[in-house]
Design a protein around this nucleic acid. Sequence first.
DNA 1: GTCTATATATAGATAGAC
DNA 2: GTCTATCTATATATAGAC
Lengths: 217, 217
Amino acid sequence: MSDGRAESADIPKQDVPRLSARALKRRGQILKAAHEVFTTKGFRNGSLSDIADRVGITHQGILHYFGSKEQLLVEVLRDRDTSGRQEFERAERPEGVDFLQHVLRTVEKNVARTGIVQAYTVLSAESVTEEHPAQGWFRDRFGDLRADLTEALRVASGPGTPVPRERLEQGASALIAVMDGLQVQWLLDPDAVDMPGIVRMTLNALLTSWGRPPLAE
Amino acid sequence: MSDGRAESADIPKQDVPRLSARALKRRGQILKAAHEVFTTKGFRNGSLSDIADRVGITHQGILHYFGSKEQLLVEVLRDRDTSGRQEFERAERPEGVDFLQHVLRTVEKNVARTGIVQAYTVLSAESVTEEHPAQGWFRDRFGDLRADLTEALRVASGPGTPVPRERLEQGASALIAVMDGLQVQWLLDPDAVDMPGIVRMTLNALLTSWGRPPLAE
DNA sequence: GTCTATATATAGATAGAC
DNA sequence: GTCTATCTATATATAGAC
């Protein structure tokens, strides 16, 4: 359902796919609108009506597609997963220094994408509250990101005396934390915080403290 | 009203302070309960009834004291300010390395204080959403903290070729960001993240990259 | 100072018409 | 597939009794 294969060969009727195509489009519109609302207003504060308004339907229309608000959030996150993965598979997954550079470029881009940044900030923090439906998703996501960054730091720290694994893992957590934490400061006071510069400085400080050269500009 | 001087000398009647004493106690109870609720469930998701339940009154009782939910949040934050300041004035304000050590000790203590950590995390992130009543408070708070940490880093980096002011400011932002960002990761997966160790490592990495010795244990 | 009663708003969700 | 109508729950807030 979420892999976009609904329109392929083995579907019996002719008008089912035609209807499904329209339905999929609506679904996509709703997911997009829901992502916007949840990320700017938070999951609990954002309402189905807010979302429905952006699509131009009523909130009952949303429930027709997703059944419940909670389920909608789950689908929004799943959708973000799959589209992100597709992006990565298209351009092959960068490794080591390339991955670190990719992360830095993402931070640079984020300065022009207040929406995305706010989304992530609000939702991830809200997920730590009791019984939040996105808790598992964020826990997993942080786990994966730590693993990827740990590996990237290991490769990037190159040959020579290897940096202890624990240090690499701490470095990964620290980098993720700096990025996330800076977003709050930046959203509240954009002129006071140079996000890309600070992330780069922190990464280079870690490399330097491990006896490695800083990343090239 | 919020500096606790209401019971002092120049108050005419005798029974006004007596009533006020009881009222002040209730006020205190409500502020404490409100702090708990807002920080575990967020401002928008936490309800006046949640708070009232903890105090053992109805939600109308809360409104009797604070007029509105928004005003209650403002008073909760103001209260946190003044009690924090009193704490600092009692033990004189640490400077330079002492301030950095104080920050590290706070992180160590936080590992045993899930409530406080969650409170801060949820509220600060929620504050970046549109029209949030705590937005100004957090913007100011981050500004003050950046200034204090910048100064502490300047003093702590000691004599010798001074570290450029911009670097110090970036370091201050980075440290605050690491602490805040780690809290989200830690709340979602406490075993996966060594908060104090990572903050210490990051601070030392910064000092090292500036040609300074790391902080003593 | 705290309560009951109530006004008002808004939320998520269900049933059924078209 | 989308709507209207409605249910139910919950929220903030006000008025007034005690």
